[in-house]
Amino acid sequence: MSNVLMTAPTVRPKKAPPRLRNRRSSHARPTRSILLTVLTALIGIYALIPLVWLLINATKTQPDLFSSFGLWFSGDFALWDNIVGVLTYDGGVFGRWFLNTLMYVVLGAGGATLLALLGGYGLAKFDFPGKRAVFAVVIGAVAVPGTALAVPTFLMFANMGLTNTPWSVIIPSLISPFGLYLMWTFAADAVPDEIMEAARLDGASEARTFFQVCLPMMAPGIVTVLLFTVVATWNNYFLPLIMLRDPSWYPLTLGLNAWNAQATTAGGEAIFNLVIAGSLLTILPLIVAFLLLQRYWQSGLAAGSVKE
């Protein structure tokens, strides 16, 4: 599907665009192998067991959680009670966290995708002074461990009055070097120079060429970058932890961690059942997004094969 991912640069022969394998219609469908399926299934089970654990334990009450075998149901089926508990605990703050996360994802991942799209397109289709330097600087910067830069970033943001505001989470989310790279490679392949030249000869401005001619061609790449930036923003944990102090701005990850830590304080109430059910609710939207976005990848593949 997401043909974007494979755009590892060396894959693409430099001369002619490769012909995509046409869903194997050209040659006989290979016979299916039970052995191969079983071996792959082992990896599949490995990937899914922790998720199954999460699903099963989301149905348990707090006491059952600690007194029953982890990979099977036990005691009362409390999934609905737990979900209601998650949604109503502490005045329904979970809903607030959910909306915060949604906002961070829409603005952060959306903005990151937009910046990566513009930047990738600019790098792929234009020569400009300092282009080499852009590449070198981006690479060099990402090799420095980000966790260690947390304090300098915090102090800078504090000076700008941004800490403890949604901006302190959104602004750093706007940069996805990986997204920039993907868009770069994708734009280089998906947008033929000839079409751009033709649009310019017709008198279209650069902006118009970009929005009306090139943008549609990059749609599959955009969807893929969006998927990765959404995952990154949705799971964002460390920077909000440093930047935010007001729980009403927390994203879900930070909120769940606060609930998990709650048991460790004198007089604190252990609510592991809510933490587990809350975790389940946290990853569900992402899984749904994966499934939905997959359709776009399908169409993306189709679009990619048309470009020949």
Binding site: T7, K125, P172, N235
Partner: peptide
């Protein structure tokens, strides 16, 4: 800055060579 912390392992790709700059550097 966040990227390294999240489960995006991403930056890596950037280390690969950039896509070949299309050869035709026209007058345009």
């Amino acid at each position: 800055m966040l990227t390294p912390l999240v489960k995006e392992r991403p930056h890596l790709t950037t280390l690969a060579s950039p896509p070949a700059v299309p050869k035709t550097a026209g007058r345009m």
